[in-house]
Design a protein around this nucleic acid. Structure first.
Lengths: 214, 214
DNA sequence: AAATCACCTTGCAGAGAGTGCAAGTTTTTA
DNA sequence: TAAAAACTTGCACTCTCTGCAAGGTGATTT
């Protein structure tokens, strides 16, 4: 009776995972990892949900309790980091330039991607080799993108139909994707955060062309 | 016997459509139109391929001879205008700024979209109301985008791994999508070409923020 | 600790997507 | 007009994805 403190939810700190949650995370991770590994080996159409489930030691029906589709298991994280991203945009200092705000808001996302480097490298490889997935990877951000558009419009005080928030959000997303593609393809190279910085700097400078002389 | 000239293929001009081609175009258009109309009415999941085929007076099997998936019938034109777009980029005057090149290359695409205004309005409405399709709409451009990246790299003489072509291509695509979304949502407004011009000008200017004062 | 509750997993049945194959039909070509 | 090529269609089949009704395992309450 001394310390059944496990139930208390301390706002601010993770409130004691609990066996059940841990198992769920494990199952989800196992399914995603198995899906990525098998698809990387054989190709998207040569892997069935049944095989993925078998590799993760669950039934095929359970697979669909975790992911709405085979694709979702591969591209992962729908809206997981999205809400935090929106929150970070909303919480940025008011006067800050929009591109700076967006770039800083992405820090957290970028850190998470770097933390799961193995997984993300595999994921980018699978996506580039199965272009059918690329739209899914982008679409996952569709809802988040709209939310950011709304937040930016409010921050700038311009009304929800003003073209600027939509343009800058779409463009920033494109810049991040370009940086991620570059990072994933020859990854021995630079840090993802640096590549993102470069891309955003180029945006702010009006996309100056690389000097042909020197 | 007087004029069976229909067979001659004059290079440069459309080489006499032929009954077969006309029928194919008709069937394809009928399927796409039926798909868009039904999905706009009922929603993506409430329409089966069988219903679409019935509305276009062909068998369900024939549907799949025209489109690889239900989604494809809705987002349409995969790689159709893509090759011409790439060609226009490649044929642009050498010294021209990249953003100008890309904007002009889009003229043809934009004209076609305006020509099919009814269809495209329906399409954008369906896509925005069924976000699951948005990735498909973008993915259709994935192959084209890579081709443009390669052409730009060659034009700039920078090698296929340089980050600039990928960044500018991705960003230009995002700008076009933002313009199309704006055009589709309140369409009574401005011309699509004007909206695209505005977006590209903003890119070239480094995405200046809208003045809060005045 | 036992009983209860909530959630998770699983199998089953079924609708719908998408494909390969083998006709049958229509257009084109010779 | 006859042969060739292309298009349509039905059929059988695999795979994806969903709803439902158990059964099981972790959490909660008394």
């Amino acid at each position: 009776m001394i310390c059944s403190v496990a139930g208390v939810t301390t706002p601010g700190a993770p409130p004691a995972p609990g066996l059940r949650d841990r198992k769920k995370r494990q199952t989800r991770a196992a399914l995603a990892e198995a899906a990525l590994r098998l698809v990387a080996e054989r190709g998207l159409d040569q892997v069935t949900v049944e095989e993925i489930s078998a590799a993760a030691d669950v039934s095929a029906r359970t697979f669909f309790n975790y992911f709405a589709s085979k694709d979702e298991a591969l591209v992962g994280d729908p809206a997981g980091g999205g809400v935090r991203l929106v929150a970070r945009v909303a919480a940025a200092p008011p006067g800050q330039p929009v591109l700076t705000t967006l770039r800083h808001a992405l820090d957290e996302v970028i850190d998470e991607i770097r933390a799961d480097r193995e997984l993300w490298s595999l994921r980018m490889e699978v996506v580039t080799r199965n272009p059918a997935l690329l739209p899914r990877l982008i679409a996952g951000n569709a809802a988040t993108e709209q939310a950011i558009v709304d937040v930016l419009a409010a921050r700038l005080g311009v009304g929800p139909d003003h073209p600027y928030p939509r343009l800058v959000t779409a463009v920033a997303g494109a810049a991040l994707r370009a940086a991620m593609t570059r990072w994933a393809t020859h990854r021995d190279d630079r840090d993802l955060a640096d590549l993102a910085d470069e891309a955003f700097a180029a945006l702010a400078a009006g996309l100056p062309e690389p000097g042909p002389a020197r």
